[in-house]
């Protein structure tokens, strides 16, 4: 679960492994303080999300300091993805990289992890309305960027126009 969320959140299998190690290291260190074993799953989730937030912010800062372009999708272990699909995913990943860390994480948790707004709000220590606003902003921006990308927009319009 941790690796999957980290992979989807970061777009890199190698970085996701680092995050997962960090998460479990923290979980082990703080396991004693966990009084209700029922809450282990949500505890692990919240540690994962905090680690991801930190990593995404660090990336943004590094990219800003180095004037770097968004990171390339560096391998998520796509087993059966052909070159065309890979290009689409690469372009989509670049768009995800452009989102603010909070928006991106909210989007990934909501749309890829299917978490509820309440769960996201609890895990990220945000109000539900902030989560909803972040989600709406992320979706609007992504849709706008997709529309501006000739390959992404063109391909899906073409598909959508078919009977």
């Amino acid at each position: 679960m941790v690796l999957r969320v980290a992979r989807r959140g970061l777009g890199s299998a190698a970085e996701a492994e680092d995050i997962a190690q960090e998460v479990f290291f923290r979980v082990f260190r703080h396991a004693k303080s966990l009084q209700d074993p029922e809450r282990l799953r949500s505890f692990v989730y919240s540690v994962t999300i905090r680690a991801l937030q930190t990593e995404l912010r660090r990336r943004k800062l590094t990219a800003w300091l180095h004037f770097e372009e968004p990171q390339a999708l560096s391998g998520l272990g796509w087993r059966s993805v052909d070159m065309e699909t890979r290009e689409l995913l690469q372009r989509f990943h670049v768009l995800l990289e452009r989102l603010a860390p909070r928006e991106r994480l909210v989007f990934v948790l909501r749309r890829m992890e299917s978490m509820t707004v309440e769960e996201i709000a609890a895990a990220m220590e945000l109000s539900e309305s902030t989560v909803k606003r972040s989600m709406a902003r992320a979706s609007t921006r992504l849709s706008r960027w997709i529309a501006a990308d000739p390959l992404l927009a063109g391909l899906y319009r073409e598909e959508g126009s078919r009977p």
Binding site: L76, V81, T85, L89, F92, R111, M112
Partner: peptide
């Protein structure tokens, strides 16, 4: 596509 592409 992005979600389904991630292997376990």
């Amino acid at each position: 596509l992005y979600r389904d592409g991630t292997e376990e």
